[in-house]
Design a protein around this nucleic acid. Sequence first.
DNA 1: TGATCAAAATTGGTCAACCAAAATTACTTT
DNA 2: AAAGTAATTTTGGTTGACCAATTTTGATCA
Lengths: 255, 255
Amino acid sequence: MENDARRYQDIAQELRDHILEKRYQIGDRLLTERQMAEQFCVGRSMVRDAVIMLEVQGFVQVRKGSGIYLLRDPSEQMQPLENDIGPFELLQARQVLEGAIAGFAAAMVTKNDILRMRDALEMENRAINALEANEHNSETDLRDYAGDEAFHRLVAEATQNSVLVQNVQDLWDLRKHSRMWKQLHHRIFDMSYRRQWLKDHQQILAALQSRDAVAARRAMQQHLAGVSETLMTLSDVDDPDFDGFLFSANSLPAS
Amino acid sequence: MENDARRYQDIAQELRDHILEKRYQIGDRLLTERQMAEQFCVGRSMVRDAVIMLEVQGFVQVRKGSGIYLLRDPSEQMQPLENDIGPFELLQARQVLEGAIAGFAAAMVTKNDILRMRDALEMENRAINALEANEHNSETDLRDYAGDEAFHRLVAEATQNSVLVQNVQDLWDLRKHSRMWKQLHHRIFDMSYRRQWLKDHQQILAALQSRDAVAARRAMQQHLAGVSETLMTLSDVDDPDFDGFLFSANSLPAS
DNA sequence: TGATCAAAATTGGTCAACCAAAATTACTTT
DNA sequence: AAAGTAATTTTGGTTGACCAATTTTGATCA
């Protein structure tokens, strides 16, 4: 019932091996579909399917009437379709990216941005208080992080650059869709962490307000490093189903 | 002239839309290839190619003799392509992001990374020489930038962080799909720009090799600032069809 | 009534022939 | 020679017919 190996995937593997064996350089034209079909003893459609696979994965470029060209070295590992990034790896990336964005934002931020960030932090504060009141309800929810998300997005929006805004949004989406984060949400019932994060946010806001790029970047990086620490602490509790998800991550160098 | 659109990609998009519209649940069996072919008014091979694309991306599972089954919600990770980001806005974002990534990479880079970067720059050098030889052929091509792309990706890969690698890849994809670059390819016949960029890359490589984070970040930022300068210069030539979209940066939502 | 098995229908898999775009070649013109 | 151009070749694109695996149907028998 479940034993379906699709043949084009085998042909794609043969093609990758062929590329490595023949030492093709990036930009070279590969064999034509007909030549590959003869060499691998299959029909041309099969070769076409395999080529489409490599094209979707970004290894080759196909140009009608011209040929098939190598774009990337197939020995490089294929991207593991990032739907389950480890939380430490993600937080490390956020330190690099959002740190730089905060630094840039410090040079661009307007009074209106500051006011909106204050609103976001106020919302975050209310969410924490509400959660503390209903402490017996241990079901934390993605919605409880709306203020958190809003603050980080507002920092990006202060740069007035839509690419950076989209970037921060993508990072947040990765977190929201991560299986590992959904596990983590059920563990953060200690509100002291949330209050510490709120303090971090206020410190970032203060640095932005004084237009201090270095301070803003450092505050953002330290905030995310602190979140990473928190995760590490939480992962110390003995629950084998939990620890398995966590990656190791190196700390950022000072720059 | 640059008609590289492969039709199966359009059909794959139609199929994604169809899945969303019909509210398929995960695990549901989709329409058969023949039904899709009729519905989308294309041959079955075209549908098969589109299905292979979605299969490679992990959205569907194909079972011979049985049907095509939904594995993941296609609304996840839908690319907001065709956004036509203004080139200056994109280059500004790359200064912020890739600058920070280069700084981080300086702390993580290995000897093997350095060697691969050298290969990429060697490839870039060959491409420039080849283009100079065929100067009468003003048709520059995407594959002429393979070395350039490879270098920037290798810098990200040196961080050993897949989120950062994907990030740089996304930024490059934005550039490749931008209307602006397709036009621009036909304008950069002045190889002095390309040689300057190669020098920039070598300087970044030198900073990485000496593990100097500050120098690496600054070299990357200055490189991208220089590219921005080049664009500005090229936009000074009098061609109204060209100037028009150079300054099409989207402004951010005010609310 | 229920189980079993084989025929029939359905579905994706494969191939070969033909189509159109691009690149190359051969020829003409200057 | 050099440049232009039309003819030819090469290349991926597309189609329809047929193949093989699976599922469904329904007749058969305990």
